[in-house]
């Protein structure tokens, strides 16, 4: 999955499953869309199933807790993929 495809997938999840209205790639998700820790855990579950295809470790999940924007999410996913492919 390319970076563009990952971005589109995340946008789809956030608009369809999380019901965010027109999320921007650099929006602070918490401030603009009310994204909270529960959403973060739920989003990680969806990323595991629909994008990565494997379960994240606890350490990997903890790293995700500093994510604020969609761009952060995409970068996080790419980092995970890179580190797992080594």
């Amino acid at each position: 999955m390319t970076k563009v495809e990952i971005t589109e997938k995340i946008l789809t999840i956030l608009t369809e499953d999380f019901e965010f209205e027109r999320p921007g790639l650099t929006d602070n998700l918490r401030d603009v869309h009310g994204f909270d820790s529960i959403d973060a855990i739920e989003l990680l579950g969806k990323i595991e199933i629909t994008i990565l295809g494997f379960p994240l470790t606890r350490e990997e999940k903890e790293k995700a807790m500093t994510i604020r924007t969609i761009n952060d999410i995409v970068n996080y996913i790419e980092d995970i993929k890179r580190s797992r492919s080594k």
Binding site: I41, E42, G45, I49
Partner: peptide, 10 residues
């Protein structure tokens, strides 16, 4: 395990 939602307890 993973099929239990994060919010199921809540």
């Amino acid at each position: 395990f993973s099929s239990i939602g994060a919010v199921d307890y809540l």
